[in-house]
């Protein structure tokens, strides 16, 4: 059974169809990436899965259950957690407070262990635990956003453009961490503009173009696909 099963998903903004009937599956343990140009509808789709947009049609099944009618705050409680585009950290709260809010929906006693684990994964955050989120660099804020999401013990982590606005070195570092998180058993759906790096760490990929999926295959064949190479990897047609 797929962990996430999206069928005929549409997102309407007023009269505009930003997502035009998409099918997408994520199996447990996979790292799936969704690539595409700016405005292809990738973020709209992620936000629809999280219930953050109105005007959504179609079906979203998570862990075998239809969740399209579920309240936004119920989703993270079931392990469906998103790291939003632009990070969405709490800028006036300290790193430690941000992470504590990540564990808000949990009541189990393992929170402390998870905090230590998060600090091990992001040593930089441990150094800055008393600093406020807004004073961190872009890369550190992204780490904080991912760390905060991990604090809620996600089963499925949705990452929206974690590389956005970051220096190349930081991008590589963040994506390496994403791979590490996947290796620890968290299923991930990664939305990225940086197609090359995303496909290098993913097992499968979808290509999205103006609201529809145009290609779906395992990451290696997408990397080799001439259409992908031309459109997303910056290689001119031979």
């Amino acid at each position: 059974m797929s962990l996430l099963e999206v069928r005929a998903l549409e997102v309407h903004y007023g009269g505009i169809r930003a997502v035009k009937g998409i099918d997408l599956d994520v199996e447990p343990g996979e790292l799936v990436c969704l690539i595409g140009a700016n405005g292809a509808g990738k973020s709209s789709m992620l936000r629809a899965i999280c219930g953050l947009v109105h005007g959504v049609r179609g079906s979203v099944r998570y862990a075998g259950e239809e969740i399209s009618g579920l309240a936004v705050h119920e989703r993270p409680r079931r392990g469906l957690v998103m790291v939003p585009e632009g990070r969405g950290i709490f800028p006036q709260l300290t790193v430690a407070e941000n992470l504590a809010i990540g564990a808000y929906a949990r009541r189990d006693p393992d929170v402390r262990d998870d905090l230590e684990r998060t600090y091990r994964l992001f040593a930089r955050l441990a150094e800055r635990r008393t600093q406020t989120g807004g004073t961190l660099s872009g890369g550190e804020q992204q780490m904080l956003a991912i760390g905060r999401a991990l604090m809620s013990r996600p089963r499925l982590l949705l990452l929206d453009e974690p590389s956005m606005g970051l220096a190349p070195l930081m991008v590589a570092k963040i994506l390496a961490t994403v791979r590490e998180i996947a290796r620890q058993g968290v299923t991930i759906l990664l939305v990225e503009q940086n197609a090359k790096l995303a496909l290098e760490i993913a097992s499968r990929g979808y290509v999205m173009e103006s609201g529809a999926i145009t290609l779906a295959a395992d990451a290696a064949s997408l990397l080799a696909d001439p259409r992908v190479r031309e459109a997303y990897l910056g290689e001119g047609a031979a």
């Binding site: 705050h73 957690v81 939003p84 969405g88 709490f90 709260l93 809010i101 808000y104 905060r148």
Partner: peptide, 14 residues
Amino acid sequence: EAIREDEIAARAMG
């Protein structure tokens, strides 16, 4: 505190 800072992010955190 989270709601005061960013309501949508707060909801996304459960």
